[in-house]
Amino acid sequence: MSMPVASALTRRTIVRCIETLLALFVLIGLNFVAVRALPGDPLGVLFADATLAAPTGEARDQLRQMYGLDGGLMDQFVRYLGHLAEGDLGVSAVHGLPVLDLILPVAPWTLLLVGTATVLSVLLGTAGGIEVGLRHGRRGNATLLAVLTVADSIPPFVKAIVLLFVFALGLNLLPASGAMTQFSEARGLARLGDIALHAVLPLSALVLHETTKIAYLTRASTITVLSRPFMTMARAKGVSPLRLRSAYVAPSTLATVVARTAALFSGLVSGVLFVEIVFAYPGLGMLVAEGITSRDYAVVQGVLLILGVTILTVNLIADLVILRLAARG
């Protein structure tokens, strides 16, 4: 009896893995082609602001070779694939450092924001959505719903700007930029506190955004659960409110939330880009934004590739876990 189930599971697992690989390939290809199909010359960007003569002729060719921008499209692509296989994401034309060396010190900050935001938005969104759902039909519910709807209509960068303006610049409660005080001595708890202080506003902007979405979903599934027999029985039994929420309602809504995890993570990674720009938070978002303005091919390619791969991997793992549970359950 278990054999057909196992083979079905294996088949689905393999299919999901292949899909992810295909998506990865599309991403890499897109990454590369889009970059090269540009008007404008990266050399022009690098030297346009020079206070004296911009290089011409022979000097330009030399510099082009130095920065790895020579050769036909196919040559560049083959070389690019080769480098990727070695883990070499190229060298930033602006910073002069290998792209990986630029990404590694920066990635933990983004990871901090996204990781913490995931936890917080799942917790807050689920709890909040359940509350609103349980209050379905009662007074005050309409206001809550209205607030949710309005909050959902505010794009993440607008939320970030408002938070920056009110809390950092207006009330002067929290730092307006950066991840921690530079070259500071603080160690241990003091340092953690410094980092946390700088992370509060960007985190809030991120969390606010995804929380409303999850709250909506949780609310909807809470409402459908409300009328189910086991709920009426639980209420009749006089189960405590906390137990009602955690043991009876929450598990039923988690299915929806888990299904949304992929989109949640994707949404957070996209959102963190804007939040970092607004708060000058030194993460991958800032790196990409700078790379975009300075047409630093390697950096933009590298960062977006890393982000895309991360999203694909996370989604794949989540899906495989769900598949595994579904097969066993």
């Binding site: 933990p108 901090l112 990781g115 913490t116 995931t118 936890v119 299915a255 888990v258 549970l325 359950g329």
Partner: peptide, 18 residues
């Protein structure tokens, strides 16, 4: 189980990032 898997997953993510 799904709930605990999800929390475990996100907690790991959180701890790794910190």
């Amino acid at each position: 189980k799904k709930l605990s898997i999800l929390f475990f997953f996100t907690a790991v993510l959180f701890l790794v990032s910190v």
